[in-house]
Amino acid sequence: MNTLLEWLNRLSSRHAVLGFWIVGGLLFQTAVFPHLAVFGLKPDVLMVVVVCWALLYGPAEGFVAGLAAGLVQDLTFGQYIGLFALAKTLVGFGVGVVAGKIFRETIWVPTAAVGVAVFAHEFVVWVCLRALHVPAPAVNIITVGLPVAVYSTLLAPLVYRQIFVHYIGERAKEKDLTGGASQAAGRR
């Protein structure tokens, strides 16, 4: 019973933080960054959050983060509900799978990962648009995908550092809990 409560507590606290990042990211992306657009393009803050989250917490959490961020994005403006949810879920999961194989402690790796993942996300969106018969010439993969990926990488260090701090804090709390439990077991 205690384990269940601890698990639920950890789950809700972690996902509350994720929710905060998604809503905050969406607000910045829809109300602030349009005014800072370069050649009409703005960074994908939500995707930066999803990638950083997936790098630290793995594929299942990457999947959840991508699904939540994409759905919120779709519901605020989408005629095509599910388009960005699908793209972000797939890329979030993919980043989570790769995350275990790369060195995450340096800031440069997540930054590069954000660039690659945002480009992959724009590619998936482009494929879906073509499938939905929305006019999107192939050149848009370069004219949209590349600049958005580059612009988004600029935000990666900032976002990753903050999520990393939360991740470390969570791990430390976990260690305290398990350490406390094993000490108690030892005393018994």
Partner: peptide
């Protein structure tokens, strides 16, 4: 989940007369 997303996307891609309740709530 992925199948539901693909289905949702292809259904909502058509011109819709109504906005979903959840869309209204979020907006």
């Amino acid at each position: 989940t992925l199948v539901v997303l693909v289905t949702l996307m292809s259904v909502t891609a058509r011109e819709r007369e109504t906005v979903l309740l959840v869309e209204k709530a979020v907006i």
